[in-house]
């Protein structure tokens, strides 16, 4: 919509935020939980290693934090750009 140029800025801010969140999402699950597990094997956590913790518990906790962080950031971006619902 040409008459509201700020929306494009709003959208690119959103895309940046989504990208950052999805990078973290992939790093904790596919990264720490699976592919990078051998690298983290030196870090002991309760009878096993950090990679196992990320695969069975850590990634879920990070997912939770990511969704709430995204909701909080987006809802404030909505207000900043004046596109929130009335």
């Amino acid at each position: 919509m040409a008459e509201q140029p700020s929306n494009n800025e709003y959208w690119s801010a959103n895309i940046r935020l989504v990208t950052v969140c999805l990078v973290i999402w992939a790093v904790v699950s596919f990264g720490f939980g699976i592919l990078l597990r051998p690298m983290l094997s030196g870090i002991a956590v309760g009878g096993t290693d950090l990679g196992f913790w990320f695969a069975q518990q850590g990634s879920i906790l990070v997912f939770l934090a990511l969704i709430f962080f995204y909701a909080w950031r987006m809802n404030s971006l909505d207000r900043q750009f004046g596109v929130e619902e009335d």
Partner: peptide, 29 residues
């Protein structure tokens, strides 16, 4: 599934929760 396989079936734990990140960031709103 996890008890009789151990680490290898962590796929279910990550897969069935990680989808909510995609849902929350890319689709639901």
């Amino acid at each position: 599934l996890i008890a009789f396989t151990g680490y290898d079936n962590s796929t279910y734990l990550m897969g069935w929760t990680g989808g909510y990140v995609l849902l929350a960031l890319l689709l639901a709103p």
